[in-house]
């Protein structure tokens, strides 16, 4: 029986009186591969930030591996949206990933930390780029580096915010292959507004548009999507010429 990685009960979150999340109940198992789908502004990123304890809900409880979010931060790996990165920032790939090994004030990075960084870079096939300045990377490469930064923390759950938004279709395939590999070692949760590609890789889907709809396996969730979910239907059909669902 798989343990619970995240348990959210009765979460309400609002900013300036505007409800962002309403009555969210969500359980993520330690071996889940979950996509949280929903329109922009549907509260997806907020949900991730609540799991990480960066935002505190007004109501409800969150447990991450049985503890409060900020007590379990060391078990969480996080990939932010990469759109907000300054690409001319004076930092190279190795230094970027090394940041993931932060131990607190006045603790220097150790040889073990450096080894872990190299291993993580190997894991995402970016070892050859370790001396490169991050501005010299493509979107897909930067994303891999940031995944390595999350992995070097040896997380038990990996949270990815809109990971496919800024990489081209060719890189997306590589990206999902990487995730398929990683999901054997940790829970993987990604949020996306693009159900098309996502659903052919992940195992379960939850639909989020202020409330949580139809959380479940991809095939059944799809039905729930069309009925209960208020996001536009073209999000599902999407008009792209590949299968949305796996053969079954």
């Amino acid at each position: 029986m798989a343990k619970n990685a995240v348990v959210m009960e009765g979460i309400f979150y609002e900013i300036n009186g505007i409800k962002i999340l309403e009555d969210i109940n969500l359980t993520i198992k330690e071996n889940d591969f979950l996509a949280i789908i929903g329109p922009n502004g549907g509260g997806k990123s907020t949900l991730l930030k609540i799991i990480m304890g960066l935002l505190k809900p007004q109501k409800g409880t969150v447990k991450v591996f049985g503890h409060l979010p900020h007590e379990s931060l060391h078990k969480i790996g996080y990939l932010p949206q990469i759109t907000h990165f300054e690409t001319d920032f004076p930092i190279n790939v190795f230094e970027t990933v090394l940041m993931g090994r932060y131990h607190g004030p006045l603790h220097n990075y150790s040889k073990d930390d450096e080894k872990s960084v190299l291993k993580s870079l190997q894991n995402v096939n970016m070892l050859d780029y370790k001396e490169q300045q991050i501005g010299e990377l493509s979107g897909g490469q930067l994303q891999r580096v940031l995944i390595a930064r999350a992995l070097t923390r040896e997380p038990q759950i990996l949270l990815l915010d809109e990971p496919t938004a800024s990489i081209d279709p060719q890189m997306q395939k590589n990206f999902y292959e990487l995730l398929s590999k990683l999901r054997n070692e940790m829970a993987v949760v990604m949020v996306s507004h693009d159900i098309g590609v996502v659903s052919s890789y992940v195992e379960t889907i939850a639909c989020l548009n202020r409330r949580l709809f139809s959380h479940g396996p991809v095939e059944t969730a799809k039905k729930g999507l069309e009925e209960a979910y208020k996001c536009p239907i073209d999000l599902i059909a999407h008009g792209i010429p590949h299968r949305v669902l796996r053969e079954h």
């Binding site: 060391h74 996080y78 932060y102």
Partner: peptide, 18 residues
């Protein structure tokens, strides 16, 4: 280390406990 982390990516800095 802390200054670098908050300058580069404030959100991630918080996630790693800075």
């Amino acid at each position: 280390r802390e200054f670098m982390a908050i300058s580069f990516d404030e959100e991630f800095a918080q996630v790693i406990g800075v």
